[in-house]
Simulated scan of single mutants.
Amino acid sequence: MSAAALDHAWIAARIPHQGSMCLLDAVASWDAERIRCIAKSHRAADNPLRSGGRLGALTGIEYAAQAVAVHGALLADADSAPAPGFLGSARGVACQVGRLDDIAADLVVDAERLSGDDRTLLYAFTLSAGDCRLLSGRVSVVLGAAPTESP
């Protein structure tokens, strides 16, 4: 599959996030264990994760979660959809910046699968821009279940 084919339209067709909530613009590289995505949406005034006109650094966890979802789509059989899942937790998160919307460069979202089975996945992630690390941590994803609604 060519890198040009792994653009925003390809991503949006394979993850549940649609419209402006699909935050990733391209897959730069990937293999069985890791993925690198590029995002420009942190600079968009209509980014749905903005609050009070700002995009806080912790919203980078959603960028990482979407990269994990794209990785699942890439690893899935061509004839089947990836297993639905939801973010179970974020651990060891370290922010080197307070916000993302004032970062001029594109975001680079790296995610590496640390472990996983049929029910859960664990990924380490890093968001960076140029040579600057912005956010890092780990996310767990629970597969095959929908989050429960609170009353």
Rank of each mutant, 00 (worst) to 15 (best):
I103T: 14
F125C: 04
D46I: 10
A3I: 12
G60N: 06
V109D: 02
A57Y: 01
V70Y: 05
A64T: 02
A3F: 00
M21A: 09
V109S: 04
R91I: 10
L127H: 00
R50C: 09
Y123E: 13
L143N: 03
Y123I: 06
E33L: 13
D25F: 01
G56E: 12
F86S: 04
R113Q: 14
G116V: 08
V139K: 03
S89M: 12
V27I: 09
A3K: 11
R54Q: 14
A105S: 12
G19D: 08
D77A: 15
V141H: 06
W30T: 03
A129G: 14
R119E: 15
R50G: 11
G88M: 12
L24H: 02
S51F: 12
C132Y: 08
T59V: 10
I15G: 07
V109M: 05
A5D: 12
A129Y: 04
A9C: 07
T120I: 12
A90D: 11
L121C: 10
V141G: 06
R119C: 10
R14I: 05
E33H: 12
H17I: 02
S115I: 09
W10S: 01
S136H: 13
A45I: 11
V97K: 09
R36G: 01
L107T: 08
R119P: 04
A12K: 07
V109I: 15
V68S: 05
A13V: 03
A64G: 12
A105D: 15
A104K: 14
A111D: 02
V70I: 03
Y63D: 05
D117V: 09
L87A: 05
V108C: 09
S2N: 14
D7H: 00
L55G: 07
T126V: 15
G137L: 08
C132H: 13
C37D: 08
E112I: 02
A57T: 13
V27E: 00
I11L: 02
L127S: 00
I61V: 15
C132S: 15
Y123C: 11
S136G: 14
I11P: 02
R133K: 15
E33T: 10
C22A: 11
T59K: 03
A124W: 03
C95A: 15
R54Y: 07
V93A: 13
D110M: 03
R99I: 10
G52N: 11
A32F: 01
S41G: 04
G85E: 01
A3N: 08
A32W: 06
L87T: 06
A94Q: 15
A129W: 07
I103G: 09
A81V: 07
D102V: 12
V70A: 04
S115D: 14
R91K: 15
N47F: 01
A5W: 04
